[in-house]
Simulated assay, not measured.
Amino acid sequence: MKTILIALAVAIAGILLFATTRPDTFRVERTITIQAPPEKIIPFLEDFHQWPAWSPYEKLDPAMKRTLSGAERGKGAVYQWDGNRKAGSGRMEVLDVVPSSKVSIQLEFTQPLESKNLAEFDLMNKGGATSVTWSMSGPQPYVTKVVTIFVSMDKLVGGDFETGLVNLKAAAEK
């Protein structure tokens, strides 16, 4: 029994030590090509009233409480939510909109874990079509480093980004 406990303690210590070698930041991104000009896509991104048409996170909790404030759209628009375990709670604020090319959003989660990240949508006009990259980046504190040994942020969020981009494509190409 003592040998098992020592082996377990060494394994846990090894995992905790290994976590210190993990990067201090993370970045997850996905890209899709949409058959529409950037001017048709930007309104879906800079206006939180339009997010139900494409965001996969809108479907996590049908009873989720949503509050929109600040600017109607674009810089200063704010979206707060409070939902179930899956949706969590937090706040988004549009930090900047570069016409036809970029929307930057400050993303703050308060539940289930606190974090502050940057979400960005980069649009590149490709002559009638637009390449849209949805990314999220931010700090990776020690607890997150430990968790990401077992579950990567890319696997945690990447599938949602893929779903959202497919939904965005369908909405923008109508």
Score class of each variant (00 low, 15 high):
residue 2 K to E: 13
residue 2 K to V: 12
residue 5 L to Q: 13
residue 5 L to I: 13
residue 5 L to M: 13
residue 7 A to W: 08
residue 14 G to L: 05
residue 20 T to H: 06
residue 22 R to N: 04
residue 22 R to W: 02
residue 35 Q to V: 08
residue 39 E to D: 13
residue 41 I to D: 00
residue 43 P to S: 03
residue 43 P to I: 02
residue 49 H to P: 03
residue 49 H to Q: 14
residue 51 W to C: 08
residue 53 A to K: 14
residue 62 P to H: 00
residue 67 T to V: 14
residue 68 L to K: 07
residue 69 S to K: 08
residue 69 S to I: 08
residue 71 A to I: 03
residue 71 A to G: 06
residue 81 W to H: 02
residue 81 W to T: 00
residue 83 G to P: 10
residue 87 A to Q: 00
residue 87 A to K: 00
residue 89 S to Q: 10
residue 90 G to E: 10
residue 91 R to V: 01
residue 91 R to K: 14
residue 93 E to M: 10
residue 105 I to H: 01
residue 109 F to H: 11
residue 113 L to Y: 13
residue 114 E to Q: 12
residue 115 S to A: 15
residue 115 S to K: 05
residue 116 K to P: 00
residue 117 N to H: 09
residue 123 L to Y: 00
residue 128 G to K: 07
residue 129 A to P: 04
residue 129 A to E: 15
residue 131 S to W: 03
residue 132 V to T: 05
residue 139 P to R: 13
residue 139 P to E: 15
residue 141 P to Q: 01
residue 145 K to G: 08
residue 147 V to T: 14
residue 150 F to C: 05
residue 150 F to P: 04
residue 151 V to P: 00
residue 158 G to A: 09
residue 167 N to H: 14
residue 167 N to G: 11
residue 170 A to W: 04
residue 172 A to L: 07
residue 173 E to D: 08
